[in-house]
């Protein structure tokens, strides 16, 4: 059974300028352990779809299940960790304190919290930074801390909304590499929203290409790249370029429809 399954999903926002069709007839199944990227121009509904999965938006039509439950039940069952565009760390908490935030709300014991903080800090390569305050860390390190925060509790799904969008390309490359390692180690199912074609192709086992007005899926690409071994250099291989080409074609087709 797929971890996330959308059937004929529709979402229309009522705005002052009339209804906006943010998602139209979205059909998608994500299996356990997949790394799925959503790519498309602004307004294509990729973030909206991720927010629907997280029950931060409510679809107006169709069905959506997460772990076999409704998204809202899945949220209550704390089935996913969500990483936002900005790190959003609390400036009045240390890095360790920030990672403890969800653990406190979920009622973990103090000893368990300390142990988990230690573990996830190592996972994102921030061992020893627990006592620092967010402003003492670089942007990339802050975003890693926010990923650690989403990993601290045992959610099997990780939803990431352009987590590296605000970072420069060198930092982004490094974080992409680390994210792949992390995914391999934890076996989580990841939904990842991005603007960047290379990022999407490099990371994903499945690439969902979307286009705007109305927001819809134009292509779903199953990556042929090896799942286990993806050095950064793979981005120069013919196979990688072929997939990137197909993504670009999909994006262009979406735009042609528009103009």
């Amino acid at each position: 059974m797929p971890v996330i399954e959308a059937k004929d999903l529709n979402l229309t926002f009522q705005t002052n300028d009339g209804p906006v069709h943010a998602l139209k007839d979205v059909n998608l199944a994500i299996e356990k352990g997949e790394f799925v990227s959503f790519i498309g121009p602004s307004g294509c509904g990729k973030t909206t779809f991720l927010r629907c999965i997280a029950a931060l938006e409510t679809p107006t039509g169709g069905s959506l299940t997460v772990n076999g439950m409704s998204p809202d039940d899945a949220r209550r069952a704390r089935s996913y960790g969500y990483v936002f565009q900005a790190a959003g760390l609390y400036p009045w908490r240390t890095i360790a304190g920030n990672i403890k935030l969800p653990l406190e709300i979920m009622g973990y014991s103090r000893a368990e919290m300390d142990q988990r903080v230690e573990k996830v800090l190592d996972l994102v390569d921030l061992g020893g930074f627990g006592k620092k305050f967010p402003w003492q860390l670089s942007g990339g390190m802050q975003q890693r801390a926010s990923i650690a925060r989403a990993l601290a509790f045992d959610a099997e799904i990780l939803l990431m909304d352009e987590p590296f969008g605000a970072l420069d390309e060198i930092v982004r490359d490094k974080l992409n590499e680390e994210l792949l390692k992390l995914w391999k180690r934890t076996g989580k199912t990841i939904g990842f929203v991005t603007h960047s074609i290379p990022e999407a192709v490099y990371l994903s086992t499945k690439i969902v290409v979307m286009s705007p007005r109305p927001g819809r899926i134009t292509d779903i690409i199953d990556s042929t790249l090896p799942r286990d071994e993806r050095p950064l250099e793979i981005r120069d291989s013919a196979e990688f370029l072929a997939i990137a080409h197909r993504v670009r074609e999909g994006l262009r087709a979406g735009h042609a429809y528009d103009e």
Binding site: R75, G81, F84, Q85, Y90, W92, I105
Partner: peptide, 27 residues
């Protein structure tokens, strides 16, 4: 909105949102 959404994803209650986010933010 993002900080409030984050607490929503943890299924935090209103009082947790108040004590852990709103009150410290207001200092």
């Amino acid at each position: 909105g993002m900080q409030l959404d984050l607490l929503r994803t943890y299924n935090a209650s209103g009082s947790e949102t108040f004590w852990k986010l709103r009150l410290p933010s207001s200092m």
